[in-house]
Write a protein that binds this DNA or RNA. Structure first.
Lengths: 351, 351
DNA sequence: GCATTCTGCGCATACGAATGCATCGGAGTC
DNA sequence: GACTCCGATGCATTCGTATGCGCAGAATGC
């Protein structure tokens, strides 16, 4: 570690201030500030002296004072519906990399569907502790993005969109993705398709479903359209429900890969062979989808690009509050692996 | 949303201050501060007036000013080696819940093994922007915890420990866990056991390995002791290496569940049946381990308790900087599922 | 050799909330 | 009725850094 931790005057109350560095160097506090911040008006000689003294004293600028004065904290919030879901770790990892590269720290804000409309939660987003907010948890019925935007908080919506809001939005082309998944199954010959989607209040679910319906409209009855959470458990439950019925589908489109894997898990437990007896398609192409244990056919939603672009976009938005908002759709592409094939001929029987 | 976002005087520079609330109420700024913070000296009538005005104006206390004055930020750092690893999401989720309940926000700090000894990184931990730090990424050779501790930053080490440091440590009983895993395989009759551990510079790996060796000492040659990262890829690679050799083991103990699943993935691709041809044991009992696709025999390391306790401990440590440090070991317990059985009789052949 | 532009730095203040101390009016005491 | 006491609020300062402005001395111009 480069900092000297044997500060000569380890004051009981705590930290070394720029005044003390100034006193040690024989200059004024403002000179210390300017020297360390790289102000060109300070001579090279003075700058070196100040830096030396600062290092020796173990001086670290106080971030609260700096934020108070400069009106920026260097912290952004990233709001996710949950963490314990395989979709978010990779996303957060990519986002974190971008923010770190831009010099921002990242506060993780878990925003579960319940616990909304809690004033104290909103306050912490408006108290100027965050320079901006990347919202990955938006639902169609949430007015929080609108409130924050009205309050002047720089926000960017990633992955999930909300209509009628003049903010930057980076989302996948869910409609085309839904079409691609459905078309793939139809091309394979499937006529008995079910869908196990995520929550209806998310744009990802509604738009993917619209895409699916645009292909399968006539062959997709409501009783084969399920909604649940974006979770392994939901997929597991949906699969059990769909396959135990009288007319089991020959294929299931899952709302995302996590649900798809839950479906596969249930199918295996039921002794249903994938893909011979049941085809499964997911969305997102999370890393796990390519594991040999799953080899999941899925639709790549450009998640890495969304992560990077939405983070960069927020950084730009923080620096230029005005300027045209961008609503970008990232292309989706089908990745065929081992969970889809032509439909079985015989009806499914579950012992 | 409860806050009124139509502030009468939407000032260009931004936020409403306590002075404006004071002016609107006809009291002094200090009274506003006291009224909103719950100071008992303020009369009920005044308090109500102030609260009303604050709400109407959309006043939210500035966190930087508050932090500067009060010397606390309400933010804790949580340092992890990475996020895109199935072990951390659940851990972070539990930790986040605890911190949120205690009123703390959580900054995520990704601390990869490279990028260490970077001064700017250390500075951001010493600039008083964090009230404390929960370190989950400690390695045996890292002096960062010591430096931070010397600088008076409240820290707690979770999961991974570092010797010779007078700080709070919450770690699993890795030695006993290692023993349990090895004993289980030995009891099943395995004599040809290999281990695919994590990085040698982590306490988890070294202590688990010591436990394993205490049982298998004479039958565990160095060439069957592999080290890699705690990742799916590492497990995958290790399995390929171990099974393709001349004398393939009948069982592999993985450094953790993520490695174990990588091993299973490789084994499946090689056409090696689990558990009939290869037994696999992991550590941690992450949620995925219980999925039907894996049904992994593993050692529960009490991770949930570690998450909760280490977060609570940090909160206590922030409030009481002195006070005895606690070094707790959380009990581990073997969870037998479907990936372990008696060893195969025939040598393994891989086409 | 004097006026003028730089260069380099000090001075003072602002950022916004918290807090020790002073103050003030009224109730209670003798 | 003067005095004490207490509840309720105002005043002034503090936290530590950033920055506009001013000023001295040096460098430049003619």
């Amino acid at each position: 570690m480069a900092l000297d931790d044997s500060a000569p005057f380890a004051r009981p109350s705590g930290r070394v201030t720029s005044r003390e560095v100034a006193a040690a160097t024989g200059v004024h506090q403002s000179t210390v500030s300017r020297a360390l911040r790289g102000d060109s008006r300070i001579s090279q000689a003075t700058r070196e002296q100040v830096k030396l003294a600062a290092r020796q004293l173990g001086y670290v600028p106080n971030s609260s004072a700096r934020s108070l004065r400069s009106q920026r904290t260097g912290i952004v919030g990233v709001m996710v519906p949950n963490i314990d879901n395989a979709y978010y770790p990779q996303l957060l990892s990519d986002i974190n990399r971008e923010f770190a590269a831009a010099g921002y720290s990242m506060v993780l804000i878990v925003d579960p569907p319940h616990r909304r409309s809690d004033v104290s939660r909103l306050e912490s987003l408006l108290d100027a502790s965050l320079d901006g907010l990347l919202i990955l948890s938006a639902t169609l019925d949430s007015d929080m993005p609108a409130v924050l935007h009205a309050r002047g908080v720089p926000i960017v919506l990633g992955v999930r969109s909300v209509p009628g809001l003049d903010v930057d939005i980076m989302e996948p082309d869910n409609f085309s993705a839904g079409r691609a998944a459905a078309q793939h199954l139809q091309d394979l010959g499937h006529r008995e398709v079910a869908v196990a989607m995520g929550p209806e209040i998310t744009s990802t679910t509604t738009h993917r479903l619209l895409g699916i319906q645009s292909v399968l409209a006539d062959t997709l009855p409501p009783e084969r359209t399920l909604h649940g959470s974006y979770s392994h458990e939901a997929g597991y439950a949906a699969c059990n429900r769909l396959l135990r019925g009288a007319d089991a589908p020959t294929a299931i489109i899952a709302g995302n890969d996590v649900i798809a894997i839950g479906i596969m898990d249930a199918a295996r437990q039921l002794g249903v062979a994938i893909p011979d007896e049941l085809s499964v398609v997911g969305f997102d192409d999370i890393p796990m989808a390519s594991w040999h244990s799953f080899r999941l056919t899925t639709v790549d939603m450009g998640t890495v690009a969304i992560a990077e672009q939405s983070a960069r976009r927020l950084v730009e938005r923080i620096q230029h509050a005005d300027g045209p908002k961008r609503h970008e759709f990232f292309p989706a592409s089908l990745t065929v692996r081992g969970t889809t094939t032509a439909p079985r001929k015989e009806p499914l029987t579950i012992e």
